[in-house]
Design a protein around this nucleic acid. Structure first.
Lengths: 239, 239
DNA sequence: CATGTTATGTGCGCTACCGACCAGACAAGC
DNA sequence: GCTTGTCTGGTCGGTAGCGCACATAACATG
């Protein structure tokens, strides 16, 4: 896992070898810094990104400056679905939430690959549907669930995209993702720490008890997870 | 407008004549009753629906019974994107929010049409991207905007899908869509009525002053509208 | 026109979250 | 060492929206 490898990304790993090989030479390894903006609202994308160890957050920033994440993308997906959906851009921004690596692919190459209507197209469309589920669930969760439940959901989704149990993440950043006040995160995280579920210090969060998180999270986490594995499980071609 | 016609649906209307004609014989006019469930969460879809005068709401119902709409579909779109996205089903439900007509198309025929990779595919993908924008914006709006602003957004989006200014709609139903308390709608609608923007009686709402709504709505309405027209404006083939 | 049903209006206490602060605590650089 | 910036902890008032319990009003039906 330590040396970067395209097959750390689920979508790339799922491609049949015959499809992947010709693509491999066009994949460019990039290192994404925390806070880096992959694209601004309405901006043109020159590349699509397949994260391996990085995590990217798709979120909308309101006129007031307030923001809210609609979905996150990690090694299970791709950043830049609008490139093959035909819109080329979106009103959302894509910001690096966890520093790490990603493989990027020229937008023309991606579009060309998509148009071949092969396994890659199927994978991309299915992933896009999973992304829609994540967005719809975020909308419902924002409406009905408590800040603590949402924090648990967010932690679990992030954890699933990381090799370790340690997140490099300030409370302020989490608050921006969830679109809540930083103090709200302080309080909820404090509760979780007191319960022995997580432990944190300046800019680091360690998950000690994953089951504890799962016990506190709302149903939304399971819905997103289940739907992702349903959509992508039967399209894994390679080991 | 009074006699049902497939080209009342934007997507069908946008198809080039050569593409539309062979499809026309497979389109079946159906009448959708208020409250009818087109598909249940996880259920299989036998048809896709192109609404003309009907409006369908996509929403998730939580374990607690609470619900929240993630997007609405009217004559600008299609119900059943999961049929061509490859998932066949979704965790959301589709419920008729405004009774009216729709043309339905057999799921195999739709899928077959999609695979031809012609104008229909492009239209469907672009519409799907617009749908994603609507979902993402709903998530952000649920987080940050007031009930009154959300009601205005919902009314405007619904209005855009209707030929008239009269909605047949109880406050209870709106509350279910927005995922708020019925009393909250009573209050917000009361304010709007006092301001002369709308007028209502048991199960009917008339919009008197569209500009008034637009003055009170949050930015989310414009984002969704603008994105929809951006994505679909350059793919209109027929008059 | 009497009756049942469904839709709307109102009042209450309650809680989760917001906004605006300030204070302490840790990390890194000089 | 000391300083400076960043991160976390706590407080205090304010409020939007919830849950609940009703009261009233419009319509539909026989």
């Amino acid at each position: 896992m330590s040396s970067p490898n395209p097959s750390q990304n689920y979508l790339l790993a799922a491609l049949p070898a015959a499809e992947f090989e010709p693509l491999a030479t066009h994949l460019e390894l990039v290192s994404l810094r925390l806070g880096e903006m992959l694209y601004e609202p309405g901006g043109q994308l020159s590349h699509a990104y397949f994260p391996t160890t990085a995590i990217v957050s798709l979120h909308y920033v309101m006129a007031s400056g307030a923001s809210a994440e609609s979905a996150g993308v990690g090694n299970e997906g791709i950043v830049g679905v609008s490139l093959f959906m035909g819109g080329n851009t979106t009103p959302s921004a894509a910001v690096v939430q966890t520093a790490g690596h990603a493989y990027r692919l020229d937008s023309h190459k991606l579009s060309q690959e998509f148009k071949r209507a092969g396994p890659m197209q199927q994978l991309l469309l299915r992933y896009t549907q999973a992304l829609m589920t994540q967005m719809a669930q975020t909308a419902a969760c924002n409406r009905h669930h408590s800040l603590e439940q949402q924090l648990c959901r967010w932690l679990l989704l992030t954890l699933d995209r990381l090799p370790s149990n340690d997140l490099i993440m300030t409370q302020e950043l989490i608050a921006n993702m969830l679109g809540v006040r930083r103090e709200g995160i302080t309080e909820a995280a404090g509760n979780l720490q007191r319960a022995g579920v997580i432990s944190y210090r300046r800019g680091h969060i360690a998950v000690l008890d994953r089951a504890g998180l799962e016990g506190r999270v709302c149903e939304c986490y399971a819905v997103v997870r289940t739907e992702l594995s349903r959509l992508l499980s039967d399209v894994r071609y390679r080991q």
